[in-house]
């Protein structure tokens, strides 16, 4: 009996709890509203659509945990997307193109990291500026949406790997990297740097280094997201990632990552993304007029956010 109570207690303290609960609650509620919403085909296609945001959510969470914020990841994803299309269209072999896209994404992440960690710019405003730069870059590479990819790519993405949806690979790789990183001593140092960079510095933590890692990793996640969305869409669009940065941040907050840094984990934001993705799908497929859809999703997002923050406050982690 005691063990059960202990388990329950530690589950309640898990920062990812609200996101997990919200997601399953919506999933269940949805099954009553929408036919076939628990069918494998629906779930897989929904997962495939949500994967790009999940990738970005991972990167966003790590940056927030280390005490900063990055709102340029959506723009980075757009760059990755159009770059990949352009490279493939120019005949570059798939493997090389993938490597180049990931390298470019990590380079953009490195720029963010340099400006913020080394040059000490304010992360919010600086990534605001770099998101404009990266959007511009994407537009320069592909001013008009278009292009196409080999059918094998889409087929791979929409297919299965070892019984699981192949799309999951794209976010599982960054997730695995993060979990490994967390197991090293760097993990707790990153959290320390996020909570209070001065205290971490005095404790001998290489604050700048940890933050640069976080930003480069976020770039890598954006690159993975770009690969995912390119495989999913089969085309390039310079504005594709515009709204994703905000969704990722909302997913992170709903997932229990504290915006002040040092608290939370990536698992929560994955469920947060799933929750947000489910909202979009539900609203899209419901009989609500398209003119109300945007408003409805906006309101649901707002309330989801408020709820998650209220929950965070109650668990005693409110810090401003």
């Amino acid at each position: 009996m005691n063990r059960a109570r202990l388990l329950l207690g530690s589950l309640r303290k898990m920062s990812a709890m609200p996101a997990i609960l919200l997601f399953f609650a919506l999933l269940v509620a949805n099954s009553f509203i929408m036919a076939n919403s628990l069918s494998r085909s629906f779930l897989v296609s929904y997962l495939n659509n949500t994967t790009p945001v999940m990738c970005i959510a991972i990167g966003t969470s790590v940056v927030i945990i280390c005490g900063e914020i990055d709102i340029s990841l959506g723009a980075m994803l757009s760059v990755g997307n159009v770059l990949l299309i352009k490279l493939l269209g120019a005949g570059v072999p798939y493997q090389a193109a993938v490597v180049l896209v990931l390298a470019a994404s990590m380079a953009m992440g490195l720029l963010n990291g340099f400006l913020i960690a080394a040059m000490r710019g304010s992360s919010l405003l600086t990534t605001f500026a770099t998101s404009t730069i990266y959007s511009g870059l994407a537009l320069l590479i592909m001013p008009v949406p278009g292009g196409s990819v080999a059918r094998e790519m889409s087929r791979f993405y929409n297919g299965s790997l070892l019984g699981l949806p192949a799309a999951a690979l794209f976010f599982m790789i960054p997730y695995a990297i993060w979990k490994i990183y967390k197991r090293t001593t760097h993990g707790m140092r990153l959290y320390a740097a996020g909570y209070d960079r001065n205290k971490a510095y005095v404790s001998g933590v290489n604050v700048t280094g940890e933050k640069i890692f976080a930003f480069v990793f976020a770039g890598f996640c954006a690159g993975m997201g770009a690969l995912a969305i390119t495989s999913s869409l089969g085309a390039g669009d310079a504005l594709i990632g515009a709204a994703m940065s905000m969704m990722a941040i909302s997913a992170a907050v709903i997932g229990g990552v504290s915006l002040s840094g040092g608290y939370g984990d990536v698992t929560g934001s994955l469920f947060g993304s799933l929750f947000l993705g489910l909202i979009t799908v539900s609203v899209l497929s419901s009989n609500v007029s398209p003119f109300v859809q945007q408003l409805a999703s906006g309101l649901i997002l707002l309330f989801g956010m408020l709820g998650a923050m209220a929950f965070g406050m109650k668990s005693g982690k409110k810090r401003n």
Partner: peptide
């Protein structure tokens, strides 16, 4: 320089 987001052990051995 001790931080509440880490455990006692992590703080001590950081």
């Amino acid at each position: 320089s001790v931080m509440p987001n880490l455990t006692v052990c992590e703080n001590l051995m950081l």
